[in-house]
């Protein structure tokens, strides 16, 4: 587990975590390797784990019947994948596919939710890290919605 401690600290998402907090989160963490084309998760599956990408690239996709999947966003090194684990009913809304060989840290959602509930300070630190990421993604999605490169 020592190895994972170090990896967590190196990930920008956990920058500023105390060693104690790192140890707590590490207890919910494990390493993953996804080959190109493999899925981290699929729409509708229980959102019982979220991911911190160490390297590689992940595409968030959504599929309509009879049409090719649409890639909504890609995520890369240093970014997190998955927010549905934070809000009931804890189910994924998209497919997440490794575009290339991707290594990631997976954090068990039930485990982390439990620790955050028990340790409000830890929970607050997690929220302070998650919320800016979500707001940034929301803003980016809004810009994407504008279709600024299309003919007006």
């Amino acid at each position: 587990m020592h190895g994972l401690d170090v990896t967590l600290e190196e990930h920008p998402f956990f920058a500023g975590f105390s060693p104690d907090q790192n140890r707590i989160v590490s207890g919910c963490a494990r390493n993953h390797k996804f080959d190109a084309g493999h899925y981290l998760f699929r729409e509708g599956d229980p959102a019982n784990e979220f991911f911190l990408i160490r390297h590689g690239r992940v595409a968030l996709e959504i599929v309509s019947p009879g049409q090719a999947p649409v890639v909504i966003a890609t995520l890369g090194k240093g970014e997190i994948v998955g927010a549905s684990w934070l809000v009931p009913p804890y189910r994924w809304m998209f497919d997440a596919r490794a575009v290339e060989l991707t290594r990631a840290i997976g954090i068990d959602a039930a485990c982390l939710r439990g620790k955050c509930d028990a340790d409000a300070q830890l929970g607050y630190e997690m929220m302070k890290r998650f919320l800016p990421v979500l707001v940034k993604r929301l803003n980016a999605t809004r810009l994407q919605l504008l279709d600024v490169y299309g003919k007006r």
Binding site: I72, T74, G76
Partner: peptide, 23 residues
Amino acid sequence: VTVDHADPDWHGHVGVVPGLIPH
């Protein structure tokens, strides 16, 4: 290079260009 919309054949970034800046 990033695109606003892509099908799975596209192996590059999908998302808006400001998102590339931290990379």
